[in-house]
Write a protein that binds this DNA or RNA. Structure first.
Length: 423
RNA sequence: GGAGAGAUGGCCGAGUGGUCGAAGGCGCACGCCUGGAAAGUGUGUAAUCGCCAAAAGUGGUUCAUGGGUUCGAAUCCCAUUCUCUCCGCCA
């Protein structure tokens, strides 16, 4: 959620920046400013009434104490009218605030000044590319065929047990999953992150805090009996650890890493991109989350991007980094880098990580603040990134490393898998 | 799931209808004391929204959350959430 003070100070700048995200916020911003003025005016009036009532109440208290009951009762009657008026104002104030809030949560985060213009993924800017794209020849199998050939991932069995998008990993497939999780966690620990094992279900407040609610509730699985949402990413519980907290400057940077299963309904996704491991309802991911001083968050974003790149290098996967354009960047993000690996049999780039700086957008919603050098409380910046999401990594590993004897495991992973070849 | 008890500031804890945003203590910050430290001692120590150009100041709100009773609620009533104890069930 954008800060009301910022909107008040420079509405034109916000409108211009949101235009990069292809949004015309003029009407909304104007309405918000109008409501905000109304809010302050109403509160002023209400406060005056309440102040008057408080004053009378004190007097009545003193009168009763000194035994002047008759006078006290007289004063009581004086409050009636003021009470009615203050109740009306109170209701009006509440409705003003809620209208304003409804509009505020509709506004996406303003993109960073470096975010390129653009409408679709086509317009994303490739900022980095590394690694050799292997030439596998015509015999190359896509990962869903390899999965069947070596009996390591069973999509149909998942359909039987649960439904499409819930694969069953078997034998070396399951062990590869476990190896990757440990590999990613160990690397994060070495990079100074603290390991967290979060709940996989969250309440409504948490969903709201990280921006999944109220908009994207259709994308989450919901356990209605207990009003709990299955997490779409560990970002949700891990960031919400800090909901309603005030940090000290010395706490920065707050670095947490969590492995979790992730659950996504993916309503509205159909077609060719969903084949095999490309898009699942349940998948595993290791997520890194940082909370930073506003002045340092962009430096931190670059560090996180380099960290994710280092993982892909260790896995010997060809990858590229995209800076997302205004049209492709998410609602909550100010600047996002996507990391994509090349999956050589499908012959396409697959997104395996998304590293974002949310600036104060999430922090404002969840009231995550810190006491700055002058003792003032201000909002923190939050960042996160996948490091990494497993399924597409597995897809690329299987496809790129297929040789006649089987599938070769990259060196860095062998200590974790306990085998060098899937055969 | 059943019965009971409870939820107060960073922490502990007092407060059962009236100048209570809240005693006292711990912690923390600053000062004095000290060669330095400890001890001692003094002062300060919540969040949030307004008013004011801003600081100072000042008004409102907040004692789990949401309602209600009352001129007045941390205190009484109702609902919800959570915690603890006992019973039941159980990885």
């Amino acid at each position: 959620m954008l800060e009301i003070n910022v909107i008040k100070e420079k509405p034109q700048e916000i409108i211009q920046r949101l235009a990069i995200k292809n949004i015309d916020a003029t009407a909304t911003i104007n309405k918000i400013l109008e409501l905000d003025a109304q809010r302050r005016e109403t509160q002023k009036k209400l406060d005056d009434y309440l102040s008057e009532l408080n004053q009378i109440n004190k007097e009545i208290g003193i009168l009763f104490k000194t035994g002047k009951t008759a006078q006290a009762n007289e004063l009581k009657e004086k409050t009636a009218q003021t009470k009615i008026q203050s109740k009306e104002l109170d209701a009006f104030l509440a409705s003003t605030i809620s209208q304003m809030n409804d509009l505020l949560v509709q506004l996406p985060n303003t993109p960073h000044s470096s975010v390129p213009k653009g409408k679709t993924a086509e317009d994303n800017e490739v900022v980095y590319q590394e690694g050799n794209i292997p030439d596998l020849g015509k015999e190359a199998l896509p990962h869903w065929d390899l999965a069947t050939k070596y009996d390591i991932i069973d999509f149909e069995l998942g359909v039987k047990i649960t439904g499409a998008g819930f694969p069953v990993y078997k034998g070396k497939g399951a062990r590869l999953q476990r190896a990757l999780i440990n590999f990613f966690l160990d690397n994060a620990l070495q990079a100074g992150y603290r390991e967290i094992q979060p709940p996989l279900m969250v309440n409504e407040d948490s969903g709201y805090g990280t921006g999944q609610l109220p908009d994207k509730e259709g994308q989450m699985y919901f356990a209605g009996l207990d009003k709990l949402y299955l997490i779409p990413t560990a970002e949700v519980p891990v960031t919400n650890i800090y909901r309603n907290t005030i940090l000290k400057v010395s706490d920065f940077p707050v670095k947490n890493v969590a492995y979790s299963s992730c659950f996504r309904r993916e309503a509205g996704s159909y077609g060719k991109d969903v084949r095999g491991l490309n898009r699942l309802h349940q998948f595993d991911k290791v997520e890194i989350v940082q909370i930073q001083h506003p002045e340092k968050s962009y430096q931190t974003l670059e560090e996180m991007r380099e960290y994710v790149a280092s993982l892909l290098q260790k896995l010997e996967l060809p990858f590229r980094t995209l800076k997302l354009c205004g049209g492709d960047i998410s609602f909550t993000s100010a600047l996002t880098y996507d990391m994509e690996v090349y999956s050589a049999a499908q012959q396409k780039w697959l997104e395996v990580s998304s590293v974002s700086n949310f600036e104060s957008f999430q922090a404002n919603r969840m009231k995550l603040r810190f006491k700055d050098e002058n003792g003032k409380t201000q909002l923190c910046h939050t960042l996160n990134g996948s490091a990494l999401a497993l399924p597409r990594i597995v897809a690329a590993l299987l496809e790129n490393n297929q040789i006649p004897r089987g599938i070769r495991i990259p060196k860095a992973l062998v200590d974790y898998t306990g085998f060098e070849l899937i055969d």
